[in-house]
Write a protein that binds this DNA or RNA. Structure first.
Lengths: 110, 110
DNA sequence: CGTGATTGCTACAGTTTCTGTAGCAATCTG
DNA sequence: CAGATTGCTACAGAAACTGTAGCAATCACG
């Protein structure tokens, strides 16, 4: 088990508990960005997510727990895992990456 | 050695090779976001980066190599590691996270 | 009722990734 | 020539992740 992400507790590699450090730590954990990305449109079930990203259930569960503890994702019995209001805000900050990544890929293959 | 990030090659957990998947894979690797963040203001030396984030030289070197291969970071002999133009563009997409993370932290501790 | 499907999630051995420490070759400094 | 700084490598031990199996709870159908 990895150190939890919680306010006031320092992130890995940071002595301060500054929010940006916590956030970068959280987002830098394997599959976290992908999970948020997969939930960008509609809610998904546990297995659905697992298959979509191709990770083991162990780690999918762990990451989902972290995302729930940090109020970015919630589990709705009727529809499945979905982004919270906070999670949607974060997603919107990320959406420009989609467009930018195309440009980036072009520059790489050039 | 982890699978390299290169255009046309699929990211971990993705069959497609779509740029956004490559980008999310790259950014989701440990320390990558932190490294970009640490370079946001001025260039830094290898050891300086290593100390700043508190990771082992092995992995710092590996991640820097990936960031160089993907043209986000470059090494200038005179000043040290720094963001490329492309890297600065990416950083600018990330800057809003800094402000947002404060709000997020407040909501968590509430 | 009872059988099967779906749900979120856990157990655990094996593999990959990362850490922590030591140290090297090359370059500059005095 | 000694000392400091540079980027980087080696390697054993520790931590994180995978892949597979499976469990308890809930729901649907007959």
């Amino acid at each position: 088990m990895v150190k939890p992400i919680l306010p006031g507790r320092p992130a890995r590699g940071s002595k301060s508990g500054r929010p940006i450090m916590l956030l970068l730590d959280l987002l830098g954990r394997r599959w976290v960005l992908r999970l948020i990305w997969e939930l960008r449109e509609e809610p998904k079930r546990f297995r659905e997510l697992q298959v979509a990203i191709g990770a083991s259930p162990t780690i999918v569960n762990e990451r989902l727990a972290e995302l729930r503890a940090t109020k970015l994702v919630e589990l709705d019995d009727a529809s499945g895992y979905r982004l919270t209001t906070l999670g949607k805000e974060l997603l919107h900050l990320f959406l420009p990456l989609n467009v930018w990544s195309e440009k980036w890929a072009n520059r790489l293959s050039a």
